[in-house]
Amino acid sequence: MELHIFAQQLLNGLSLGAIYGLIAIGYTMVYGIIGMINFAHGDVYMISAYLTAIAMSVVFSFGVDSVPFALLIILAVAVLVTAAYGWVIERIAYRPLRGSTRLAPLISAIGMSLVLQSYVQVSQGARNQGIPTLIKGSLRIGSDTKFVQMTHIQLLIVAVTVAAMGALTFVIQRTSLGRQCRATQQDRKMAGILGIDTNRIISTVFVIGASMAAVAGVLVTLNYGSFDFSIDFITGIKAFTAAVLGGIGSLPGAMLGGVILGMSEALFSGFVNTDYKDVFAFVLLVVVLIFRPSGLLGKAEFEKV
């Protein structure tokens, strides 16, 4: 095995894993606070991809020619609208079910996911969509024939994921909002009694999660250049697997799970067999959960009697 090939596969896995991690944040935060798998999260990410392309064509039609400025506007639009989606989804599909059985929001989340997916399909058409390549070039190390490389946008993705993870960890650990989140997470009723507006906190978490999905949507669209309305499921389920692998509810866990999942996929597909890489990813998940039932960085659950 040649070293540069191996290193390249690791880097491939890292950039893929960073994407998983970024989307996994939304799953892990929502799960952390209300203990619910938000199946519509993948769809929010998909919508953000559409917003990226739409905002981009509008921005360029106004004659903006500075790429960084255009990117900022696109990011702002995507985050704003997607955050509104997060808020609305929570308000319509989940809040009325609070205090009901644990499975009811799960089913309404699946319904919501269907709604969003077919809404986008009906209004935007079923065609594959794309954006022109904005950020070109890559960083190469090594000789002309034997080198490892990461494109600039892949480097950006990794940087943004790390930054987002750091910022959110800071918010959760150090700020008042974070303390309120953690209180709501531990005991919603008690937090309510202590004067925390738990509904507002939960909405905020949905908005943050959706914004992260928006950032992921923008970056991934810049990276791959194409998307369609069905990207929600395939990426969503992997990101969710990443969140569980790392320990759901834990922010660093989302990152770690994403990177492990991405790298194991890249290595397995690179050196064993591409067909079975997803099988390997799920087997890895099962094995990890058998030995660490709460994921890699998750806190063990103690049952109270």
Partner: peptide, 20 residues
Amino acid sequence: YEGLTRGEKDFNALVTKVKA
């Protein structure tokens, strides 16, 4: 001789394999 998954967008690992 390899298969990729429909709907995915990241084929970098496969591409590196082609290179190898």
